[in-house]
Nucleic acid binder design. Sequence first.
DNA 1: ACAAGATACTTCATCTGTCAAGGTATATTT
DNA 2: AAATATACCTTGACAGATGAAGTATCTTGT
Lengths: 108, 108
Amino acid sequence: MSITSDLIRGHTDTIILAHLSRGNSYGYEINKAILTATGRRYELKEATLYTAFRRLEEAGCIVSYWGDETTGARRRYYAITPYGRETHTRLVAEWQEARELIAALIGE
Amino acid sequence: MSITSDLIRGHTDTIILAHLSRGNSYGYEINKAILTATGRRYELKEATLYTAFRRLEEAGCIVSYWGDETTGARRRYYAITPYGRETHTRLVAEWQEARELIAALIGE
DNA sequence: ACAAGATACTTCATCTGTCAAGGTATATTT
DNA sequence: AAATATACCTTGACAGATGAAGTATCTTGT
């Protein structure tokens, strides 16, 4: 893992909402998806992930339900809400603005 | 101020080193420069700035000295060290990598 | 002369997000 | 039987950011 988490900090919610906006999912799967999408250069740690799920559900951005697996470990699925989609749109816009500001400040 | 600080968090050191790599400066001036460069959309708070100066000096990235102003409030100037320049180069590279990872993860 | 505001630095207590470490449980592979 | 993979959860501690408060000097407007 080469990237320090402070550089991704603040994007955790955006990353999760982006994933859920493409379909319902669960913690373990999201965790693996991030590893894959980044070529194992970044991992959203489990504790961070579950903390974020609590935060996002508390805020009304996502809802959760237990899967009905008849085999294997139980899964808690998450679905994005309409408010979660709004939030996602806003967070992406904020990222784009932050990216420009940082570019202006560090000149790269 | 429209951008939440968590999006800039982790870039504070990079921003300061970028500024100092263009010449010695002092806290108040850097603070104003950031306000100007971002069109007042982002402010590096004073407490954050001075915390960062301590951290960077502790780490050997910068050195400080009191200015010899004969008028006005005293100024503590900061200069980047060779190690600070190395660090700056590394931090900029990390930012570029983080930017790609985030893009890959949120698809924008 | 006086008040207000700008310049300039500092410290402390608090908040938030991250994460190491530990735990629980089931299924599959060796 | 042991190891590995799947899957979730909690707790305590840490680091960076920041509000709030303080100190001191100089400039500007009235």
